[in-house]
Nucleic acid binder design. Structure first.
Length: 224
DNA sequence: TTGTGATCATTA
DNA sequence: TAATGATCACAA
């Protein structure tokens, strides 16, 4: 029954990351008195919130990095028996208004992905949440090539939104990062720029990293 | 209502 | 079977 403390430095954080590698989510949950769901049909964010707590992340739903003072964003990465990501990775909400003149350099996506702590979790769906095993977490920053890919996808899709073509954007676009719905349900609405430049209502969207991209990140980290 | 944490489940 | 679109819980 320990109470996690906020890591004050990156080495301290990585120490904690190494300490939980190899443990199951059930073991972590027990240690911190987290209720363990039998499945994630509800509580889809359970794994992420558990790990956040265990590592002493600032928590909350603020649009800032999980470890604000360290400038590090924590992302769990569900992987299958083949070691590859099972899901795309949510990055952030897509701004749909006031986007004229918005540049990549000042985008939330660039800032969020500037420094990421990836934490792979063996999370094949036939494994109950409590038996899922935590892997070796590692820090990552996009290299030149990766940033160029992200930037291109961001610019391509944000231009459509700026031009009022939000409804032409779908998950098919983007080589490494796509835009998909991100809402409570398909009836949720938010403001966006319409074809005639006026405000329209549309489904809230989010940026997601495609699995092919996160697969490459994992490969670069572990293949050598 | 929006943003955080994501996974579910139907479609292609 | 991979990918897209839909959905769940919670905090502020």
């Amino acid at each position: 029954m320990t109470k996690p403390s906020i890591p004050r430095s990156i080495p301290e954080l990585m120490n904690n990351v190494d300490a939980i590698a190899g443990l199951t989510l059930g073991e972590i949950a027990t240690q911190f008195d987290f209720a363990i769901p039998k499945n994630l049909l509800k509580e889809k964010g359970w794994s992420g919130q558990l790990i956040e707590y265990a590592l002493g992340a600032s928590a909350g739903s603020k649009p800032v990095p999980d470890f604000e003072h360290l400038g590090i964003e924590l992302k769990t990465l569900p992987i299958g028996y083949n070691g590859k990501p099972l899901e795309t990775t949510y990055v952030t909400v897509v701004p749909l208004t006031d986007v004229t003149g918005l540049r990549w350099e000042e985008s939330v996506v660039k800032h969020k992905l500037n420094h990421v702590l990836w934490l792979p979790i063996l999370a094949q769906r036939d494994i109950p949440p409590m038996d899922r095993t935590i892997g070796c977490g590692f820090l990552w920053r996009p290299n030149q090539h990766e940033e160029a890919l992200l930037r291109r996808d961001w610019e391509e899709q944000m231009e459509l939104i700026a031009l009022g073509k939000v409804n032409d954007v779908s998950g098919h676009l983007g080589e490494v990062m796509q835009i998909r719905p991100k809402a409570a349900n398909s009836k949720a609405l938010t403001d966006a720029i319409g074809p005639d430049g006026k405000i329209i209502k549309t489904l809230p969207r989010g940026f997601y990293l495609k699995t092919q991209f996160t697969t490459t990140i994992l490969a670069n980290q572990f293949s050598i």
